[in-house]
Design a binder for these strands. Structure first.
Lengths: 234, 234
DNA sequence: TCTTCCATTTTGTGTAGACTTTAAATTTTT
DNA sequence: AAAAATTTAAAGTCTACACAAAATGGAAGA
């Protein structure tokens, strides 16, 4: 039989399974009927059941193991998905006017802590770029970035006075691997000046390391203005 | 023909497509060949190509639209997936011994800010639970939580002296919806005491609101010990 | 020139069936 | 008993095909 209006779709199955989990009908650790049985129940093929259950497992509701079957996860390992927005988009989403300003850009040998962090050879050349992102005239983010020149030689010709290093990199270098860290740091004198907050103020901070096929490309520290909150729903 | 060792799998296709994107062969905004053409190239069915491309789109590399085709996303909206670990797991993963201590638990009318945040009726009863999570004898996290009694009536009989409210809730109440926020806050006197840090210290903080079918269930603020970093790779 | 409508292309999803892989469970051997 | 080999159940993936749905681009009409 082919797909008609009365066909059970994989989305319906997902919904139904979720409802049963949430209603407590299928408690945590419960073993679900196997795909074949569910296919009979939903009057569809095993393929369709498979897709529904596979996606629910991806989303962290179920655990599936060959031969062992499918069971409801006890502590739903729900994973928050943060879509890291581009600064410009984030500013404009709040109704602000995005403005960018370059603070400094210079080539220098990598400081020891950076060399250690990125597994560089000591003294390897990096471009150090510092810049500000504003929402209107209010500081939004201070960006402190290092770019490994050997990995992105074109960076020596780049002009960061009009375009932010992140935008430039996104356009220029693909990447394979990102390590993202969130933390709370304290505003030192310099940072306090840039962000226009009192010295010692807690500052929400994101660190981002980007690799291209095992080669370190860039390390960025992004300091957000006071009161910044990173939110996600799931 | 059936699946043999020389069959191209959807995983191979994903790899190949990714490689082409990363190598620059398929630049951002490039329109990919359609599924039928790729199926011919990879000597497989369109179904298999479809799965590969669908997953890559889910992962944020491609954008797909009917009739318009599949194209490489210009600014890869890579999404960070944080798996929010249970505190116990997190402590034990670092080799520490997890210890839990209840600080206080009392039923009270919801404070105004909480009622506003959770859309409660003013003065609705909530259980306010405060507790500490330790790694060995080192403070790891201070948890400040409110539980809406109307949504979880059993909470009045719960005993939080031995089990943390989060563990209890996970076992007791399914949930449908979570809002998670990260921010940097400042340690006030109380918090500084619990976390054993100087007053005014920046503290990495997570707020979590949980809903069950539109009903607010719980609001939790989790204050992490000094130096805490939340990291993910993708 | 502008709008409306329609054909066409491309992805989306389903059916039916087969073979593959993993690992749990059982049996056999030591 | 314990270890090794075998069976077997369940998910994983692929083929081959069909129809559905969306949206683009062009044609027809105003």
């Amino acid at each position: 039989m082919t797909q008609t209006s009365d066909t059970t779709s994989y989305k319906d199955i997902k919904q139904t399974v979720l409802r049963r989990i949430r209603s407590g009908q299928w408690q945590p650790d419960t073993l679900l009927p196997n795909e074949q049985e569910l296919a009979v129940e939903f009057s569809c093929t095993r393929t369709t059941v498979n897709r529904a259950l596979r996606e629910l497992a991806n989303e962290g509701f179920l655990e599936r193991r060959r031969k062992a079957g499918t069971r409801v996860l006890s502590a739903p390992q729900r994973q928050a998905r943060f879509t890291i927005p581009l600064v410009r988009d984030e500013v404009e989403a709040t109704g602000g006017t995005y403005r960018y300003a370059l603070v400094s850009a210079e080539t220098q040998p990598a400081p020891d802590w950076l060399a250690a962090r990125l597994a560089l050879t000591p003294g390897q050349s990096v471009m150090h770029v510092r810049c500000m992102h504003y929402s209107g005239n209010t500081p939004f983010q201070f960006e402190d970035r290092w770019i490994v020149i050997d990995s992105v030689p074109q960076v020596e010709q780049a002009d960061f006075s009009g375009i932010g290093p992140n935008d430039w990199l996104v356009q220029t270098v693909p990447f394979t691997n990102v390590e993202l860290t969130f933390l709370a740091s304290r505003a030192d004198t310099t940072l306090a000046g840039f962000l226009d907050v009192p010295e010692g103020e807690p500052v929400f901070t994101a660190e981002r390391i980007t690799w291209l096929q095992g080669q370190p490309v860039t390390f960025a520290k992004m300091y957000f203005a006071a009161g910044y909150r990173m939110t996600t729903e799931f």
